Each structure stands twice: as structure tokens, then as C-alpha cells.
Amino acid sequence: MVEESLTAADIGGALGERATLVQFSSAFCQPCRATRRVLTEVAAMVEGIGHVEIDAESHLGLVRRLEVERTPTVLVLDAQGRITTRASGQPRKADVIAALGRAVTPS
């Protein structure tokens, strides 16, 4: 798999200074709401972490490019926008924290 990078323009929001949590969601997805809560909590715990939620139905080009097959799908980006982790389904808070630990650039 080719290493994929995303820009602020790609995700429609600013990249976090240290890492970014990108969530693909859909309107009637109950696990998406729970995922939003988890990612918002984790992003608030660590300085320099951004969280961007993308409506999959409104961004089909990006969904196809990244081969997002279900919602929620979460991508963890490092400070340069490189995808370091990808997961589908509702994540556990501990798994998100661990993935961030691998992506975060020491401050």
C-alpha cells in the first residue's frame, strides 16, 4: 500500500499541530455519534491534536480515494498529514490513545 497523505484542503479542516483524528461518518450512524464523543475527548486530552469529522456522503471523491467502505472509519494522521493508523467501526478510547502515541511527534 502506498503511503497516503492528506492536507487540510483534503479534509476540510486544519491539521493538528502534532496529529489529527479524521472521522468519516454518515447521518444515521449510531456508532458514529459514539465515535465522535471518544475522539473529541481524546483530542481534548492531548495538546496539538485535531479532530475533523467528514460526512462520507458529501465527500464521495475522498471516500473512494481512501477506499472507505463503512462508517465510522477513523484515520490517525501524523503532523505532516500521513496516515499512520486506519480503523473501521467504533474505536475504544484506549486504542485511539495508543494510535496517537505512535503518530505524535514529541513536542
Score class of each variant (00 low, 15 high):
Leu15Glu: 02
Val52Glu: 10
Gly81Cys: 07
Val2Met: 13
Val76Ala: 05
Glu17Cys: 02
Phe28Ala: 03
Thr73Lys: 07
Glu3Thr: 08
Thr35Asn: 01
Ala34Ser: 08
Cys32Val: 02
Phe28Ser: 00
Thr84Arg: 15
Val22Trp: 02
Gly81Ser: 08
Ser5Val: 08
Arg64Trp: 15
Asp10Arg: 01
Glu41Pro: 08
Val42Cys: 10
Thr71Gln: 10
Arg37Cys: 06
Ile49Gly: 09
Ala98Lys: 15
Arg86Trp: 10
Gly12Glu: 00
Leu21Met: 05
Ala44Ser: 13
Leu39Gly: 00
Gln23Met: 05
Leu77Tyr: 06
Ala56Met: 06
Ser25Met: 03
Asp78Cys: 07
Arg92Thr: 07
Val68Leu: 10
Leu75Asp: 02
Ala98Thr: 15
Ile97Tyr: 05
Glu3Gly: 04
Cys29Tyr: 01
Ile97Pro: 05
Ile83Pro: 05
Arg64His: 15
Gln80Ser: 03
Gly50Asp: 13
Leu62Asn: 13
Glu47Lys: 10
Gly61Glu: 15
Ala19Cys: 04
Val42Phe: 12
Glu47Asp: 12
Val38Asp: 01
Arg65Ile: 12
Ala44Pro: 04
Asp10Ser: 01
Val74Phe: 06
Ala43Trp: 01
Ala87Tyr: 01
Ala8Val: 05
Ser5Lys: 11
Lys93Phe: 05
Phe24Thr: 01
Gly13Met: 01
Ile11Arg: 05
Gly61Asn: 14
Gly61Cys: 14
Ala56Leu: 08
Leu60Tyr: 10
Ser58Trp: 12
Leu62Glu: 13
Thr35Glu: 00
Arg36Thr: 04
Ile83Leu: 09
Leu60Pro: 13
Gln90Lys: 05
Ala27Met: 11
Ala8Met: 07
Arg86Leu: 01
